[in-house]
Amino acid sequence: MSANYTTRRRAVTGLRFGLLAVALVVFLFPFYWMFKTSVEPTDAVYGDVGLLPGGFTFTHYEQAFSVGFHESVINSLIVAIGTTVLTTVVALIGAFSILRYRYPGRGGAAKLVLLTYMFPHVALIVPVFYLAAQVGLLSSPIMLIAMHTMLALPFCMWILMAFLEDIPRELEEAALVEGASELGAFARITVPLSYPGIIAAGTFAFIMSWGEYMFAFVLMRESASHTVPVALHQLLGAYAIDWGLLAAVSIIATVPVLALFWLMAKYLGEGIAKGTGVV
């Protein structure tokens, strides 16, 4: 190889890393700014603009607790975990049924699931609010979990169908022949083999539910029932905006999602690549 070629390859590699670095800065800068704002004293926020924090304080975090923001974190955790479990279980059973069994309306069911994904959700606000009020589930996590499951289900089923499709039927049949029931074969063979898909679907459902604002705002009327996005919005005062407090609660709102992502990163790539057909 000529020296020229080697130099060119190095230049290309350098350029790649350079572009990646620029992209990272663009993506991460808002997060850095949020962090910076959350730890500097209020007067520094309104002072000269600088890249480094103008001082260091935990006041805003203490303030977040004193306004009860941690309660909304707990509400959100309840809703998000409920949504994740319900979505994953329903999506797994649904995907398995559509792929493995032949019955009338099977193809229609698969299309209907995708259709709900296309449906403008705003149009559901009034009927859902009315329904929740009628059955007395306003401000109850149950109604919100149901709504979030509806929102997350199509994509999660999509991911899981792509996964289950790749599991040869013979692996389940081998279990049937060795003495397992249909359900036993599903639980002992199919489910463990689709863990990456289940984790990808679950993570998607969790993140979707954690950040969902519209239905949470409409359904969770009492302030004690507010989830993180709603509580966050309530902190935008009508006359004065406490930037430090807002930044601090935003950081708090981000932490669970980041932690989940960090734990699941290994499986997420495979799961999403398979679910969307991008490999």
Partner: peptide, 20 residues
């Protein structure tokens, strides 16, 4: 009757071994 009630076993063409 489902396979589990037939007291037989089967070796599959793909072998169908469980790698997990």
């Amino acid at each position: 009757q489902p396979p589990r009630h037939r007291n037989l076993s089967m070796v599959f063409q793909s072998l169908a071994l469980w790698n997990h």
